[in-house]
Simulated scan of single mutants.
Amino acid sequence: MLKRLAVVAGSALALCLGSVPLAFADETLSTGPFDYTNNFITPFEPGAFTTESHRSLLLSPLGRTGRIDCHTFHGTTFKCTQTLSDGTVFILDQVSPYGLRSTWISHPGPSFAS
């Protein structure tokens, strides 16, 4: 009887462990960086507060010049940078509280963050 219980418990454990997906094998959990340029809009662009209000606001003297790269994980965007064509990188900081429209500002000087 004890032997049968051990076999059943071992089989159940093997079945459970064999069916658990491995998180590191899931490529969708990659954090980037990804090109997010089209996910941003400046307050002065048409539709910024109407038809395009689903896009993140970008408060930057550069506007949407250059490429904007962001990391993302489980629907949360973070660690964004704006790279100009000459390779200058500006860090973007999110200034809006959680739950409100995402608003980002650029640092006044270039940074060399990666």
Results as ranks from 00 to 15, higher is better:
T42K: 07
N38G: 08
F40P: 05
I91V: 14
E52Y: 04
A25N: 14
P21N: 08
L62E: 04
C80G: 09
H54M: 10
L62F: 09
T37Y: 01
P61R: 11
T88V: 04
L17E: 10
T50D: 15
S11N: 11
T37P: 03
H54A: 15
P61G: 11
T65A: 15
V20R: 13
Q94I: 06
G32P: 02
V89L: 01
S53R: 11
G66F: 01
S30Y: 07
Y36K: 07
S53L: 11
S85E: 13
A25S: 15
L17S: 14
A12H: 04
T83W: 05
K79M: 10
T77I: 13
F40A: 06
L29W: 15
G18A: 05
S30H: 10
S60K: 02
A14L: 12
A12M: 14
L59Y: 15
P21W: 12
A23W: 14
L57N: 01
T65M: 10
H71P: 01
E52F: 05
H54F: 12
I68A: 02
L59N: 15
L59G: 12
S56D: 09
F34D: 07
D93Y: 12
S60V: 06
L13I: 13
D35W: 00
Q82N: 05
C80A: 10
G47T: 00
F78Q: 03
P46W: 06
T83Q: 12
S56L: 03
P21S: 13
P43L: 01
F73Q: 15
L15V: 11
D93S: 15
S85L: 08
S53T: 12
A12F: 12
